[in-house]
Structures are given as structure tokens and as C-alpha cells.
Design a protein around this nucleic acid. Sequence first.
DNA 1: GATTTAATAAAACGAACGTTCAATTAATTC
DNA 2: GAATTAATTGAACGTTCGTTTTATTAAATC
Lengths: 209, 209
Amino acid sequence: MARTTGSDGGKTEAAIRDAATGLIARFGYEAMSMRQLAAEVGVQAAALYRYFPTKEDLLFALMRGHMEALADAWQEARPSSRDPVIRLAAYVENHIAFHVRRRHSTHVSNMELRSLSPERLTHILKMRAAYEKELRAILRDGAEQGLFAIEDTGLTAMALIQMITGVIVWFRPGDRLSIAGVSATYLKMTMRLVGAKTATEERHVYAHA
Amino acid sequence: MARTTGSDGGKTEAAIRDAATGLIARFGYEAMSMRQLAAEVGVQAAALYRYFPTKEDLLFALMRGHMEALADAWQEARPSSRDPVIRLAAYVENHIAFHVRRRHSTHVSNMELRSLSPERLTHILKMRAAYEKELRAILRDGAEQGLFAIEDTGLTAMALIQMITGVIVWFRPGDRLSIAGVSATYLKMTMRLVGAKTATEERHVYAHA
DNA sequence: GATTTAATAAAACGAACGTTCAATTAATTC
DNA sequence: GAATTAATTGAACGTTCGTTTTATTAAATC
């Protein structure tokens, strides 16, 4: 046999990306063989090489796609308001929603960086840095306006990112908690962590004093 | 040649563990070959099999050793006080100090769980669960005594663990920040995150009101 | 100092790996 | 409907992998 009935390049490439994301997330990049991936797609191993010249090209394509989707999602979710509290809330909510929605893809991008060539590693890290820079800007603005009580903007940004990305480590859709509930709780923790004074909290503080 | 002058089983095993921890942390478990490890130790690949029957046995030994060391460190650092604030501070400080000190080992234990057999994975996860249970107990006690403002003990514990373990992702000894400085900042963020009312903060709140 | 045991080297095993190549068939173009 | 292009197969290549076996030498024992 050779070309199969109904075969289509576009569909096959998408199927490869999907299957690879799942397999790498589950077993790891090194542990996934090209033959295993081909079997998952329903194709022979050689067919993969029409779409991705090497295994590493495939990994890089997945990671770049993930980072581009993340940047796009944030552009879409970014609020027009200049209020740091509103912007921080939007950042956290978009981050959690995106990463839960794309759990496997996130796992790949976070765990397999060391399998990238130095140039490609740098490329992905730059995309990540640009995204994280947005959070630091929000924190800096909030601190300058006296809305946040922050010791170190860089440290706080890293702590927040680790915390909110960590959701995907334990969260499973259909758990006792809904995505919305988890997101709301993480938002409250975030606001306390940065020392934000919300209207509610101020009322509580005054009542207490 | 065969047995070499000055060769010693105890020393060789320790050298294998050290070298393996470094190599797996850098390149990943699957990517590290037994020949590469042997070369790092300064020995032939076959010699490794006198100490660890299989590659997976070696990985499991490293992970179990890491978790045991973590449990020991916490037993050592655990305060006699029953005050949740003091206990939480001790937990966070010990956690950060331990993980920074054993960065490579931590990376191995956090990233390579999927290379373990199901039984061994369960074993390591149980050790981890026991350690994290201590944190949940502290948070629960603090919440019950009205010292912490926490929505969900389990969620908060996970968020805290992700946050304070994340230090090792970006922290490099000899950075612009000292371990003590980072630890102090993370402790403040922790206390705010759980809504702890410290003496200092209460004074500040009252002065503000 | 002979004997036993511990530690290692050297070579080899079969299996699996990423990748390539030539052949073959489906879909498209003219 | 013939010619061309796109998609895929099946088989093979050389390499590397984890692991085993056998032989050899250093250290420990008596």
C-alpha cells in the first residue's frame, strides 16, 4: 500500500501535533518513540517525516505553538483599564484558564526545555520572558501607586507564576472543584500575596480596628 | 585490567549517586545513558550494575533518598511550639533551605516520577503526601484558631508548595540575592497569602485605620 | 603466604532508536 | 483520461541503548 484513501496533509499534521502533545506529556519527550507516535496517529513512522524533518523539530513546533497561543490569549484577555488590581486579576484568571485548558501542552513546554537545541531554547525562553514581563509591569505599577505591598517585583512575579501554573499539577477537570472555583480562590490568594487592599478587605480591616 | 588500586565499594556507590543526580538533573533520566554515567564516575558501565541492578533501581534509590532526607530535615527543624505562625514559618524556611541546598536532587524527584514503575511511583508519592500533610495540619490549626484567613486548606497547601518549591527553578547560588534574603521575602509572601495577622502587621493596620 | 572475596574491565547481546530511501497509490491538474 | 503531484508504505541503515557474561586483579581473611 501507499497513499491511503481520504488522506490529507493538513489533517495528518494536526493529528501528529495532538498525538505528540499527549504522548510527550504522559511519557516524556525522550521516552516517546517516533514509532509509538506513528501508531497513535494511525500511520507509519516514515510518514511523520513529511511534516517534521526531525523529532526535535516536532518538539519545537509544539512549544512555539503553545507560547504563541498563550500570547494570543493574553492579548485577547488584557483589559483596557489601567488599574493594576483589575489587570492583575485578568492576568491570573487568563493564566489559569489557559493552562488548565491546555494542560498537556503546558506540561510539554515546561518539562522538555532541555531537549531543545541552544538556539531554540533561547527562542522559547524569550517568548516566555515577554509574557512574564507583563506581570512584572503590573506589579510595578501597583507598587508605585501604593496599591500593592511588594518587597521585590521580580521575586513576587516568579512566586506568582509558579503558584498559578502549579494548578495543572494537581487539578483534574471533573474534580470536586470547578475551574471557576479554583480560579476564584487563587485570585484571592494572589491579592493577599501582593498585599492588595480591595474594597472588601478595607471594610473588614476598619471594622476590626 | 580488572579491579583497580584503591577501589572501594562504598565510595563508588556514593560517586554513582552523586554523578547520576547531576546528570539526570541536567539531561533527564531517559537522556542519561549508563555509559555516560560510568564515564562521569570514571568506571566501566558494567561496574554500575554491582550497585544498582537496573537503571530504574538507581533512579528509585535517588528519589527515596531525597524524600527520606527531606523528612529527616523537617523532623530536625520542626519547632516545639504549637503556634501555627511559628510552625508555618519553620516549614517554609526549612523547605526553601533544603530544596536550594539539594537543587539537583529536587529536580530529579520532581521531574522524573513518570519513569518509575507504578508500585514505586506510589511509594514515592506516599512519602510526599506525608510531608505535605504536615503543612495542611499547620494551615488547618491556624485557620481554626482564627490566625489565618484561608478559603480551602488543601488548595492553599498546594499553592504554597508550588510557590516555595519554585525557588529552585530560578535561584542560583551567588545570585544578586542571598538564600537568607530570598527566604525572608518568601516568608512574608507566605504569611500574607494565608492571611496571617502578625504583630507587626496588626500595628500597621491600626495605624492606618 | 595461600585462599577467598570484592571490585572492576572488556567484550558481546539482542532490541530499539531516529532516520532514509525506493516504490506505490490517491488526488489533482490540464 | 493522461500527466503530475501529494501522501503514504515497507524495508532497511547504522547507531546506541540497557544489560549480561566471563575473565582478571586488588584487598581481606586465615
